[in-house]
Design a protein around this nucleic acid. Structure first.
Length: 573
RNA sequence: CGGGGUGUAGCUCAGCUUGGUAGAGCGCUUGCUUCGGGAGCAAGAGGUCGCAGGUUCGAAUCCUGUCACCCCGACCA
């Protein structure tokens, strides 16, 4: 592709409403343009990237035995009413009405439609298992679209749905999908982790997420290098401390703490570490009352774990300050477990504190030197907190590492939630109807593009992993109008590269070199070839690798072999 | 849905307080000079100042309404 035939508009300035780097770079490099909130047009360069991702996804799905289909993006309400999700899905579902006043929605997902397909097509257990997939546009009417294509309302998703006679077959396909996903993200050249995940309301027994590792990720994931443990932090169990509680040495003392509310206030005012404090969070209870949750001061409450604690209401809801005051006589921030008239559940690590600091259940006062069993009885223990870096792995292989991730894939064992309510059955060996059991497997195709940039960029622009770069090579001619030999050499090289099967972007614009270099860096094509007068005189082109910055002179006749040798192999693991 | 903010040229923004009929930088067009990391000079094109009312001799500016977008939170997973 010649740049004189591709109206590429790059931006020097950062668009005002782009918050994160991938969004900024995608706009600056001309990959996408925003049409409206959460809606993007994929421009030529961006679409090439999207297509490369799709191709790899498609190849690996096919290899894993999945069958590609294409389902309507607009779906009738009747199907959604069959499973009850028409009412449950809420405002995330974009509802549409046609000229006959019939209700439809724009698909946010396709369990209903694919189950309808399966119950019509599949009659016999002999046909199973079947794994249908599609790559299609989805729409979710997000409350707050943000981060460009990473949380858009309209997006491209690969969604697959498998149908089985029994759990063993489901597990086999689930494992095959997990393997296919690992291959996909490996081939894309991304650093990623597969982690145990929370299935959420979608139901089912087992679920794992695939995360691209990036600082800007919205999720936190924990894993251990020494064993196979890996989980979303929201799902990672924290082991009870191995060491016993030390003996108390201090006397229980009530100290005035005017204006002190938060743990930060306490540590600053009393000059103690947060890990020496105990914090008390009051939440709504399942019986309409309140429940106090006790955590070490430096620990973070895990909402999913808290919801499973005895007596805690679902969904988890912090009690209002008024309710807390009414129930305890003390304001939020001064609550502590000593003589607290509420049921209490303590995190394991809070129970090995000694001589700790906590609220005194009175405004502007705290207690120091508090000790379990001397000053107050031990409450019920539970795992309530988020794991932290350095916590022991549940797998026993050593310490946990925690990093941020962007969720780009999610696989579920669904069970019969949809097949049951939609009566998707086949006849088994005995001629008896059996409800099929299902799995579903999603990949955020358009999100991958943003995630890849989050993970791979520098101060000058994008650093595409080779497999998803819009072009393999960018060829720049320097001052072509001034030098016929340069024009001739660059033109010939362009033809040769194309003939050799390289995707080449040829910057043949009549622009200054600096402009071309800056655009090349911004767009992020991995291999750059420069043909200029001083090189051509010696029969050479200048090669530069975008990511490493390494430069070399290459003979014009050696370029093809040189580049072939430099194509990256897929990253391992 | 609650709170905050912004709508002025393709992009980033100034002008608004104190009304007098619209600007800068980048980008775009043309010419000349330049030319190996986002050139210089000159001349241009481009805006019903989000939209609709109102006040006023006169509104980008003041008032009312409305729409769109952004941020924080809640919600969702």
């Amino acid at each position: 592709m010649r740049l004189t035939h591709l109206p590429l508009t790059t931006l020097k300035e950062v668009p005002a409403d782009a918050e994160i780097i991938s969004h900024q770079l995608m706009l600056r490099a001309g990959l996408v343009r925003r049409l409206s909130s959460g809606l993007f047009t994929w421009m030529p360069l961006g679409l090439r990237v999207l297509r490369k991702v799709e191709r790899i996804v498609r190849e690996e799905m096919d290899r894993a035995g999945a069958l590609e289909i294409l389902m309507p993006a607009v779906q009738p309400a009747e199907l959604w009413q069959e499973t009850g999700r028409w009412d449950v899905y809420g405002d995330l579902l974009l509802r549409i009405r046609d000229r006959h006043d019939r209700d439809y929605c724009f698909a946010p997902t396709a369990e209903e439609v694919v189950t309808e397909v399966a119950r019509r097509e599949l009659r016999s257990y002999r046909q199973l298992p079947v794994n249908y997939y599609q790559i299609n546009t989805k729409f979710r009417d997000e409350i707050r679209p943000r981060f460009g294509v990473m949380r858009a309302r309209e997006f491209v998703m690969k969604d697959a749905y498998s149908f089985h006679l029994d759990q063993a077959s489901l597990e086999a396909t689930y494992d095959a999908m997990a393997e296919a996903y690992s291959r996909i993200f490996t081939r894309l050249g991304l650093r990623f982790r597969k982690v145990d995940a929370h299935g959420g309301e979608i139901g089912g027994s087992r679920s794992q997420e695939f995360h691209v590792l990036a600082e800007s990720g919205e999720d936190r994931i924990a894993w251990c290098e020494g064993d196979s443990f890996a989980a979303n932090v929201e799902m990672a169990p924290a082991a009870p401390p191995a060491i016993p509680r030390p003996a108390g040495t201090q006397a229980l003392t009530r100290v005035p703490t005017p204006g002190v509310r938060s743990i930060d206030d306490v540590t600053a005012f009393l000059k103690v570490g947060a890990s020496q404090c105990l914090k008390t969070l009051v939440v709504e209870g399942s019986d309409g009352g309140l429940v106090a949750l006790l955590l070490r001061g430096d620990h973070e409450l895990n909402p999913l774990k808290a919801e499973r604690a005895p007596g805690v209401a679902r969904p988890l809801k912090l009690a209002s300050p008024e309710r807390v005051l009414a129930a305890t006589g003390a304001p939020v921030g001064a609550i502590g477990p000593v003589n607290l008239p509420l049921p209490m559940v303590a995190d394991h690590s809070a129970l090995v504190l000694a001589d700790f600091v906590c609220g005194a259940n009175a405004a502007d006062a705290h207690l120091t030197g508090v000790n379990w069993e001397r000053d107050l009885p031990l409450p019920r223990a539970a795992d309530l907190r988020n794991v932290e870096t350095g916590d022991p792995s549940p797998g026993g292989g050593g310490a946990l590492t925690i990093a941020r991730g962007i969720e780009v894939g999610h696989i579920f064992q669904l069970g019969d939630k949809y097949s049951q309510s939609m009566h998707a059955v086949v006849l088994d060996q005995d001629g008896k109807e059996r409800v099929m059991t299902m799995g579903c497997y999603g990949i955020g195709v358009s999100r991958i593009v943003g995630a890849a940039i989050e993970q791979n960029h520098d101060g000058n622009g994008i650093l595409w992993p080779e497999p998803m770069s819009p072009f393999d090579v960018i060829l720049i001619e320097i001052n072509p109008k001034k030098s016929d030999p340069v024009t001739a050499a660059a033109g010939a090289l362009y033809k040769d590269l194309q003939a050799a099967g390289f995707d080449v972007l040829f910057d043949d614009r009549d622009a200054r070199p600096g402009v071309k270099f800056a655009d090349a860096d911004l767009v992020g094509i991995p291999h750059r070839l420069v043909v200029g007068e001083r090189g051509v005189r010696e029969g050479k082109a200048e090669y530069r690798h975008r990511t490493s910055g390494n430069e070399e002179q290459v003979g014009l006749t050696d370029v093809l072999d040189f580049l072939r040798a430099r194509r990256e192999l897929p990253r391992q693991g």
